[in-house]
Design a protein around this nucleic acid. Structure first.
Lengths: 233, 233
DNA sequence: TAGTGGTCTAGACCACCAA
DNA sequence: TGGTGGTCTAGACCACTAT
């Protein structure tokens, strides 16, 4: 039991993690109540609460609404991987970046668009397609739908010199995002635009973002199958 | 301004998000201090603090230690995606799970193994290959190297009834992990074992874990290309 | 009814940064 | 030196669950 002067919620966090790691508290079993732990550690309940909230977020414990239970997870939690959002950022790690606009269209949302972006069918949207090059090699094909309602000057943007990402980050913050990763054969139009052998696979990342309930943008990013997404943690 | 009776930190969170979205507070600019916001919203500072901590975690604002600054992010943050580790967990969401062991071998590490797992060539390792089924459909092919040094009874494990994951989570906590995601054509042995058309792509996840500096396990997970990896945040 | 986690409060101390 | 975010405290109310 440490007591450097007063225990911080981080210390408590570690202490609890230790107990779980040492199997002092069994996987799937209850752990003492916040009030009990507060007494044991000699801190206020709020401090224990915060430590446990973090542990819950990290996936080490499960907390049940108003039940006396707090359970330690038996199965392991997923770890996390960071997706670099801006192709420019990636290219910035050594290679020279180049950008080319392929398509820019305002149109009424088809049923498919509406589903993808999360707006009403028939509403106006902006469709942008562009290529990101790394040292003159095609690095990413970006196909993006933008909700014009996010800013008054959306429809004035040409995206000729700069990609939509650069504009969006300056104009449209988001509070929620959803990611999907997958792969498929390149034969359809995306692969062609990437100049990939149609029989080779492409690596696909999709991202949708919202500001509160309002959809901002939906983007599909195609990479050659040589693409690797790596992270530590 | 909402006041359902008393403002919760979630309401404040939304209120602030709204302000940022409406560009009432400019990207890159300061926002009022916690104390000021507390007065404005008519709540305790702790409540504002919690709301802002969450917004910072979400990447909407940047907080500088003891500087009067709280800045709205200009560049976009990298977002994170959670990888579900245990096939069992995924299958647990509706489908019935089945497991089949294909290979279990102790052997001296080849140069390739050593590189993959991070141990000395020639050291003993455990090689396990198995299949995870979801409702009798092949869901994942798992190919795993295990460092026997992590536990005294590693080489006693048969893995016949239960996958290595279940055993590992109970026995070998890790402090560091590295992930790689990619895809390729199925033609090589992995694809065959998944019973996939050799011309179809497979989705590949790789994970390596360490406890401090000691390698624990390296696993390669192959999925049919229909696999989707999704996350919110 | 007793106990729980979720949340808010009002107040406090700290270490630091800018002036 | 005054303002800031980071943190802790002691106490409180709520809605709920298990008994």
């Amino acid at each position: 039991m440490t007591s450097p002067s007063r225990m911080t919620f981080r210390a408590i966090n570690e202490e609890i993690t230790q107990c779980i790691g040492d199997r002092m508290w069994e996987p799937g079993g209850l752990i003492p109540s916040e009030r009990a732990l507060a007494v044991e550690f000699g801190v206020a309940r709020g401090t224990v609460n915060r430590a446990l909230q973090e542990l819950a977020r990290a996936g080490l414990v499960e907390r049940k609404r108003r039940t006396c239970t707090r359970v330690v997870l038996h199965p392991v939690r997923g770890a996390r991987i960071a997706i670099p959002l801006v192709a420019q950022e990636i290219a910035a790690s050594g290679a020279t970046y180049r950008y080319r606009l392929l398509l820019r269209a305002e149109r009424a949302a088809s049923a498919c668009d509406a589903d993808r972006l999360g707006i009403e069918p028939g509403a106006t949207l902006l469709h942008v397609r562009c290529l990101h090059y790394s040292d003159d090699r095609r690095y990413q094909l970006e196909d993006r739908l933008i909700n014009p309602a996010i800013a008054s000057d959306t429809l004035q943007e040409s995206f000729e010199k700069e990609g939509p990402n650069e504009w969006l980050v300056a104009v449209a913050p988001f509070s929620r995002a959803e990611f999907t990763l997958s792969c498929r054969l390149a034969k359809r139009r995306g692969g062609t635009l990437l100049e990939i052998d149609p029989k080779a696979p492409v690596f696909i990342g999709e991202r949708r973002t919202w500001l509160l309930a309002r959809p901002i943008t939906a983007v599909r990013m195609l990479h050659p199958h040589t693409h690797r997404l790596m992270t530590t943690l």
